[in-house]
Design a protein around this nucleic acid. Structure first.
Lengths: 237, 237
DNA sequence: AGAGAATGTGAGCACGGACTCACGTTTTCA
DNA sequence: TGAAAACGTGAGTCCGTGCTCACATTCTCT
């Protein structure tokens, strides 16, 4: 792949048949990504699957990177509007309910097309274009921040930008790792519960509870419940 | 890269000069990964930088993937023993203190060689070998679980495996995204504070606080601070 | 109609990468 | 000491990939 190639300046489809070709190319790319991963998505292969010639691919996409980028863009735009709509439906709910709805939505979204999400997220760091500032990420964070602002008073974190960054990335990452490492979790209600607890616990004002929990054992625990001791020994290899 | 190549069966260094070559190769690989990324780490290039011939590389590593895998293994083993040692030093501290120490350790570890961590984490999903069960991940999770067990009684989550999964991945992911997206955060004390709040808040037993927080505004907020309203409108694009 | 623009074609080039192999050199050890 | 094993070499093979270009086809619009 040439490194100096500009990523944007390419012919835009003017006639409808061109639009069709363009769509076919994007769809084929997505399909290959899902089925065989990034490496299989060579320009020649994409052209073949799309039923067009390589030349046509390069009419509309200046490089392989631009091609994958376009698929990503399409997909992310969807995610963005989804979240926007989701947030619009929140009036009249408690913070707790709102967070649960949003988390559930993110999980459902990823579960709907797990493989595509997986591949795209993995390729994200390879996109030169995004190395500087990723407008999508910025908008996502702004959205979360906007969600937090009305609750600024009742919530612990003072730096809402950082809070948005943390919440967004927590939910995003935990969804992603569950997807790849623990697919069962995605459909397990308790996972949603835990994610909610995580976010809500983070937002809650401090208190003393766990701090009172006492010291860690020196060697062996002196006083401990039977259940605790049992699960402990079963945890050893 | 051939896909059918076995990843293990390769000559093991028996003489000391062989060990030297082997080390040189691994070091060169790591160095290239850090400086120029994965794509630059071609076998020929690795050999050149290591000062050996390509043939020697293939004496000990059956493929490029195996090569990178070896670097990863080395690096992850380090991380594992680090965490083990860190946990061994925790007796006599509160849960709160313990968590803070561990989080700070993870952050410091990544900040010490950010680029290597970054590249390796990015390449992780490409490793065919790990697609099934990743023994490193298993051991890490077991470690966290072992850490949690003595506190099973004073802590909210009932499923300690899931809790370990969530905590480990939260800290890991948030460290990583900070590394790549907000490097300033890594040295900011407040980021450590927030991560601690996140984990501790998650572990704390439930309570009513935020639930009482009331409803979200229907259309426009009725009662809201000036500051909140101001930053809110500025949040629009 | 027909000229020019838009669209589509695909053989093939240039390049670089992963990997092999036939052969030298050094070490081991009986 | 000398033969076998371990180690090291690097030119060279093979293959896929990204991408171009000269040309053919279709559309648009006066």
């Amino acid at each position: 792949m040439k490194s100096g190639t500009p990523l944007v300046p390419r012919r835009k489809p003017r006639q409808s048949r061109a639009q069709v070709t363009c769509d076919a190319i994007l769809t084929a790319t997505a399909q290959i990504l899902v089925k065989d991963g990034y490496d299989a998505a060579s320009t020649n292969n994409v052209a073949r699957v799309a039923g067009v010639s390589v030349g046509s691919v390069y009419q509309y996409f200046s490089s392989k990177e631009a091609l994958v980028m376009a698929v990503m863009e399409r997909h992310r735009a969807e995610g963005l509007t989804d979240l926007e709509e989701g947030m619009a439906r929140l009036s009249g709910t408690t913070l707790r309910e709102a967070i649960r709805l949003l988390i559930r939505q993110v999980l459902a979204k990823k579960a709907a097309n797990p493989r595509l999400h997986e591949v795209l997220v993995e390729q994200l760091p390879r996109m030169r274009q995004l190395q500087q500032v990723d407008p999508y990420a910025v908008r996502m964070l702004r959205l979360v921040r906007t969600f937090l602002e009305p609750h600024a008073a009742e919530v612990r974190p003072r730096d809402l930008d950082m809070a948005a960054f943390i919440i967004f990335n927590t939910v995003e990452s935990l969804t992603h790792v569950a997807l790849t490492g623990r697919p069962e979790y995605l459909t397990r209600e308790s996972y949603v519960d835990e994610l909610c607890a995580l976010v809500l616990g983070y937002l809650q004002p401090e208190r003393e509870a766990v701090r009172r929990g006492g010291r860690l054992p020196e060697r062996t625990p002196r006083t401990r419940t039977v259940a605790a001791r049992k699960s402990r020994s079963s945890g050893k290899r």
